[in-house]
Design a binder for these strands. Structure first.
Lengths: 259, 259
DNA sequence: CTCTTTTGTCCGATATATCGGACACTTGTC
DNA sequence: GACAAGTGTCCGATATATCGGACAAAAGAG
């Protein structure tokens, strides 16, 4: 079977004898990606240079995990899990890269600290921020995990959860503010409902006694508040300024809308 | 979503001591998918229950392969490779599932053997077929790899390759028909050009002396002939019948167009 | 500034995952 | 029909990948 036509068969990384399972898996998937079509075990063995038994074993493991799928002719190709992971990557990167430019515009136009925030597990986190030209900023650092009840964004992000789910989702200690005050769950839930109705949330003197936070939701294609855009300003800002900023946020959020 | 945050978290499949690297990788990715956001090494260690050193090692391997990416804050998330794999899966499944219903319609309406074909490496293969109600069919079995020069679809699929690339791509022995006749490369190339101009290819008595194959391209979003739809009929079919079938194929192919 | 905690890297021991080969079964050939 | 070639499963030996723990560097705490 004079075979092996154009493919010189580079076993990717490893060429030694007893290779790491993970490396074999990487080789397998790389080959599938090159062929862009299902492959038989035989083809995978030849293409990767891996032992036959290893290929069968790994394919079996990966099939069970949904990473690969075996069709009724025994052909192997990527599975549903890969699709999900790929979507995670795409959604994450697309949203973040577009949010970055939106933030830049907001910060430049209004010269206030603007942020792009998401939930991370049961905490809130600033994913991106832009401080404009302000010498000092009122803002959390990016990536730091903050209790959800401390923030305006948190009230927006929990828009579609029930009181029960929220109580279950957020650790009890997160309802205690830095200064020791405690937020009552009923009040918190009422603010979430209000935020949903208004399309924005405002908090004052919560995490920081001088700060006022304005947050609006960024919806994903499912109408779910997947992230927020927000300004953090001083509490001395007049009503008109707040409205102006909220309008700008809402407009900016719409440009990130729908995926 | 009953989430798990403080939860020690069931390490998916394995709970033993020394786990297989591949299983750990599956656990890692499963966690990332649940969180839908980058995670720190620490979080991954806690979430998966894997040893710290293992997580670092595996993340390093997977990062190098592009399966994961580490941002400048040390956070880990899915990488570009996952995106590519996911696209492979989606494209494959979407196209094939839609082709299946198209084939059913074609076979039902014209009562001829209809097929959906793609390249696989340097061979041609029937991915789907539908024989209508014909008692006997003239058709290759699905999944069998056939030399490209033996088929009408092959002439369509190679539409954008140069003579040189084709000569390089197809093994010399594939130019020899089952009956021993040899196809000259120049003739083959001319037929490819003709197929490209006409938007279809017809072959007679090539792989089978009684068969006539009608093939039209299914273009992907890049205008590339990624697959074909074809009928295999007897050579005795009159010209008008052939035209009728070709028109139906072209129309059907348009419904699969553009991804 | 010192002390503590966390984070990332390195390395050797050993539990075990990988591999080769044998086996049964199917498929193709003459 | 017999024979050859290919495919999928199983199992024990052993090369080695995984893991724990030690270490240095960085980050917090006071």
């Amino acid at each position: 079977m004079s075979e092996s036509f154009t493919t010189p068969n580079a076993p990717a990384g490893s060429s030694g004898k007893r290779a790491r399972g993970v490396d074999r898996v990487i080789d397998l998937c790389t080959q599938l990606h090159r062929h862009k079509a299902p492959m038989t075990p035989r083809e995978l063995v030849e293409a990767t240079g891996a032992p036959r038994s290893s290929v069968y074993e790994l394919v079996s493991i990966l099939s069970e995990a949904g990473w690969l799928e075996v069709d009724r002719d025994g052909r192997i190709f990527f599975g549903r899990a890969m699709h999900l992971f790929g979507l995670d990557y795409a959604r994450h990167n697309d949203l973040i890269s577009r949010a970055r430019s939106v933030l830049r515009q907001l910060a430049a136009e209004f010269n206030e600290t603007s942020q792009f925030c998401m939930l991370e597990g049961n905490k809130y986190t600033v994913v991106l921020d832009d401080n404009g030209t302000r010498p000092f900023r009122i803002s959390a650092d990016t990536g730091v995990r903050i209790p959800i009840p401390w923030t305006a964004s948190g009230r927006v992000l929990l828009g579609d959860m029930t009181l029960e789910a929220i109580a279950d989702f957020i650790p009890a200690e997160d309802f205690v503010l830095p200064d020791g005050r405690e937020i009552h769950r009923e009040d918190f839930f009422a603010e979430i409902e209000k935020a949903r109705d208004q399309g924005h949330a405002i908090t004052e003197g919560l995490a920081d006694s001088f700060a006022c936070c304005l947050a609006v939701p960024v919806f994903d294609q499912g109408g779910h508040a997947h992230a927020t855009l927000c300004f953090t300003i001083g509490r001395d800002a007049p009503e008109t300024r707040r409205d102006e900023l909220l309008d700008a946020l809402k407009q900016a959020a719409r440009t990130l809308y729908g995926h």
